[in-house]
Design a protein around this nucleic acid. Sequence first.
DNA 1: GCCTATATTTCGATT
DNA 2: AATCGAAGTATAGGC
Lengths: 220, 220
Amino acid sequence: MRLVIARCSVDYAGRLTAHLPSAPRLILVKADGSVSVHADDRAYKPLNWMSPPCTLKEADGDVWTVENKGGEKLIITLEEVMHDSSHELGVDPGLIKDGVEAHLQELLADRIETLGEGYSLIRREYPTAIGPVDILCRDADHRTVAVEIKRRGEIDGVEQLTRYLELLNRDPHLAPVKGVFAAQEIKPQARVLATDRGIDCVVLDYDALRGIEDDKLRLF
Amino acid sequence: MRLVIARCSVDYAGRLTAHLPSAPRLILVKADGSVSVHADDRAYKPLNWMSPPCTLKEADGDVWTVENKGGEKLIITLEEVMHDSSHELGVDPGLIKDGVEAHLQELLADRIETLGEGYSLIRREYPTAIGPVDILCRDADHRTVAVEIKRRGEIDGVEQLTRYLELLNRDPHLAPVKGVFAAQEIKPQARVLATDRGIDCVVLDYDALRGIEDDKLRLF
DNA sequence: GCCTATATTTCGATT
DNA sequence: AATCGAAGTATAGGC
């Protein structure tokens, strides 16, 4: 990893055209070949960058040309270098995550009765022509219920569930299929749209779901 | 901007829970308060980060705790510091962009006959209760046409246009309203869905649109 | 490899 | 502040 602090101007020509006037910035060159130009704000997002795989050429040392296979170009003109250092970091062991949608799906499938008494699981990732439905189950009256799970419930999720319901309801073995939109947090507009379409909204409590599971695990 | 190269381990507890085992990494502290932890790959995306506004506390100097108002926490345990430098960059003049969706919209509005002979513009950003329609125009037979413009046309865009059409068709002054999905690139599934709903698909050639506009500008 | 869905999306504009 | 739509989205998972 190479760190360069320099006054520079940058031009990018690729999927769009962009220009950065001269100013002091951080130029970050990673071992994977990527180059990114950072200002002292905008959180972690660079002002400009080139993703790997790409090649970096230093013409004269003060004009860097970074190019990828698609013909996209990043041209960095260095005017004054304040810092330049390189560091060996090695391969990173990587991030261990917990608490994403897949886990919510597992938890809810394990405790499908969270949706109501008498609910039973048919299967997770129920396949359809337009993609898998997160959870397919039956309610106490044996009616089919399709569940779409999101961490944050927004309009897209309701649209997605609507498409699944339309398709599932064409299957005489399943129809009529009810829809349930389950998320840790449901945006007002998503709730309005869901309600308007007769889809139930359920707010999931991740810690409670996990707690219930922990209890269950402790019993066995 | 502060650059630290150090062997460290990281724990994040917030919207999800995540852990990074000990390894050498770059820790980037920006003037806006953001902290990001980078490995030597994954392009510009950090392994872990905290967006501003947040506060950084250095207990003993080897355990950093970064916290935001939402109670999210990033804990960085430094084990061996290989580099530590700070640099004054000042405020960045910012990026100048060209070629995005807004520009496509302007170009197409200026050359609305790209959609077909006899087309005339009603207005760009036609306001509705659920947001502005990119372009509203009339075809040669004076029928209303709603146009949704995307750089890349995907299913979401078709859904968005569908919602607009549903709403616009309730207005007796406008109905019946036809839909046109215009993009530089239209994904197969989006095209299928659009066609199924009677929405026309138009692939826009940005350079051609701009060329036509340049020609026009040269004439005046 | 293409395509789809997700993301601690981030970011900006608008209400 | 909340919300919505766009992004050079990036990235992981399926087919």
